[in-house]
Design a protein around this nucleic acid. Structure first.
Lengths: 183, 183
DNA sequence: GAGCCTCCGTACGGCACCGTATGGAATGTG
DNA sequence: CACATTCCATACGGTGCCGTACGGAGGCTC
């Protein structure tokens, strides 16, 4: 009656560990303890630790990245979409933990390609949003980089040193105004 | 005639390693190899690895943080100060590597206090800058958080995925306009 | 229920790093 | 030039993780 595990079971606990402790926490033996199994299972489903990490990151890319875009796309106007995006980080910064973990491990061969794809896609998406707001191509790109920088930076601040951020509700308004406003 | 080392020699190589490989790279044995000595030296100067890391972070805090503020303070007006700050990241993102390494290791007991102090000091400094630009206290705080988020986020982007950032010179102008502009 | 295939536990060797013990070299001090 | 002090190399045991080898248990098929 011993439970059996699937690849998905392993990537699920790996995602937990990834969010909590970063890429280094995706380690076979600690994960085995967490899942209530031994390494034997892990090394049956995956050839090595790198493959497990890769599968985990790709699962995150598939599920999470698109989930955010869908959440945002549910809004009607570009403005509302932007607001949804920033409100998302401000209200639940923990959900960004994995992206920050990936940024911190940008040199890892399993991380780099996923990180590049996700970043490019998001910048491109934001760029479209700003074009929709009436910005010219070049300006839209800069706004996109700016907006994504704010997104990342706020996620960092809220996770690492949340106590320095006061009045999140009003901050959201100021942030949006600053990012979409005509200088 | 074998060279002798000081605490400062050790924290110097530790700073290098910290910038290159993050907090995890501040490890006694690799550092000993890098410095051309053995662990014996390290464990004479420091009781353990944690103490070496702590001394390294505090050295960075002392030297680097104040250095940036002095660089910025050399400018006359708040506007020029802000410009200098953002130009600094955009032109030399590698100099921010250590701060990002600390953010990634926010839970490390040696990192947390330094990270908190540095973040608080910088936000407070930016807040003063925005008060100098005529913002009310609350608004100045939000601008400070916004500006610091942009700083961190751009540093992240430029280090992790530099290819997505185009036209840095024009980006600088757009960034400043967005951060100081009235919504 | 015999045999097969899937899955996993156990046991092992290896590597990288931590920290300790200790003798001795290098350097300062009388 | 004794001789104490400062500094460091060597050698060792301990821990946590990687990856492999292998046997065996659980479920499937006939």
């Amino acid at each position: 009656m011993t439970k059996r595990r699937t690849k998905d079971d392993w990537t699920a606990v790996a995602l937990e560990a990834l969010a909590e402790g970063g890429v280094a926490a995706v380690a076979v033996e600690p994960l085995a303890a967490r899942i209530g199994a031994t390494k034997g299972s892990a090394y049956w489903h995956f050839p090595n630790r790198e493959a497990l990490l890769k599968a985990t990151l790709e699962r995150w890319e598939r599920e999470h990245t698109e989930a955010v875009i869908e959440l945002v796309e549910a809004r009607a106007t570009p403005m509302e979409k932007l607001r949804t995006l920033f409100a998302y980080v401000l209200e639940d910064p923990a959900s960004s933990a994995i992206e920050l973990a990936m940024l911190a491990a940008k040199d890892d061969p399993a991380v780099a390609p996923v990180l590049n794809r996700v970043t490019e896609r998001r910048i491109a998406y934001l760029e479209d949003l700003f074009v929709g707001l009436g910005f010219a191509a070049g300006a839209a790109h800069h706004r996109a980089v700016l907006a994504y920088s704010v997104y990342l930076g706020q996620a960092q601040l809220l996770i690492a040193t949340p106590h320095v951020v006061l009045g999140r509700r009003a901050l959201l308004e100021d942030t949006i105004a600053a990012v979409v406003g005509r200088g």
